[in-house]
């Protein structure tokens, strides 16, 4: 997508290539740090935000899918998150690390999205439609680009059950569990993202792990 050697006109841009003061400084965006990319984006460097998104797209999107439990919702939050980064980039302190800021915004947006979704209950795609003799659900009427419907069935069922258990954790426990377990973040970084003390992160994670174990135990006994 991006990450090519671009040219930045330093000391004021000029179209006159013969101007001795005009220097073109090649910027290798791929070699720049996240924080520097934000600075470059604020300075109007084309491609800087593209590179930032490219670096974090999959990891952040995975986090959002796990957090929201919905791919569609995760896509909305993903866009909102980077739009917020764009809007607030000028206020970013380049001496601080970007990743905690990015995940702070993403987590807050994801929380808002879940609340928003709870206030607007939607019709499940499993809702029966049509006559009662041979009921079909809305999802049956939608075109599918999946491959073999049988092969991932068991895995999908397992994911659904785990998803349900994770959803039963409160927001506070779920986000800490996801950040530490899947994103491999240390306590201090999670504390920074959630703006809570490290001790609170620890105790919440212990509670979350305990709660998950108990809920999964109940789920398995069904």
């Amino acid at each position: 997508m991006t990450g090519f050697a671009l040219h930045l006109h330093a000391f004021g841009s000029s179209d006159d290539s013969t101007d001795s003061m005009a220097q073109t400084v090649p910027v290798d965006l791929q070699a720049e740090s996240d924080e520097r990319l934000v600075k470059l984006h604020v300075d109007g460097q084309p491609g800087a935000i593209d590179e930032l998104i490219r670096r974090h797209r999959d990891e952040l999107f995975g986090y959002l899918v796990r957090f929201t439990g919905s791919r569609a919702l995760a896509e909305d939050v993903f866009q909102e998150t980077f739009l917020q980064i764009h809007l607030s980039a000028a206020t970013f302190d380049v001496d601080r690390r970007l990743k905690p800021w990015l995940y702070t915004i993403a987590t807050n947006k994801a929380r808002d999205a879940r609340r928003w979704l709870r206030r607007r209950p939607s019709v499940s795609l499993d809702t029966p439609v049509g006559g009662s003799d041979d009921p079909v659900s809305m999802v049956d009427l939608m075109p599918s680009n999946g491959e073999d419907p049988q092969s991932p069935l068991q895995g999908a069922e397992q994911s659904k059950r785990v998803r349900a258990v994770v959803d039963r954790l409160g927001d506070a426990q779920r986000e800490i569990l996801l950040l530490t377990y899947f994103q491999r973040m240390p306590y201090a970084q999670v504390a920074n993202i959630l703006n809570i003390p490290v001790g609170t992160v620890k105790s919440r994670l212990h509670s979350a792990v305990r709660a998950f174990g108990e809920l999964w135990g109940e789920e398995s006994e069904r």
Binding site: M1, V42, I49, D50, I53, R54, R57, D58, L60, F61, G62, V65, R66, R71, E75, F78, Q79, F82, L83, H86, L87, A89, A90, G155, Q158, S159, R161, V162, R163, V165, V166, L177, Y181, F182, V209, F212, G213, W216
Partner: peptide, 30 residues
């Protein structure tokens, strides 16, 4: 925590999502 591994696999962020995000950013003045 091993059951959590069922959530490990997540779909990648598709290019169309990234393009849509960039389009929104470019349409929004800083």
């Amino acid at each position: 925590l091993q059951p959590l591994e069922a959530l490990r696999e997540t779909p990648p962020a598709e290019d169309v999502l990234v393009h849509a995000t960039l389009a929104r950013i470019k349409a929004t003045p800083t």
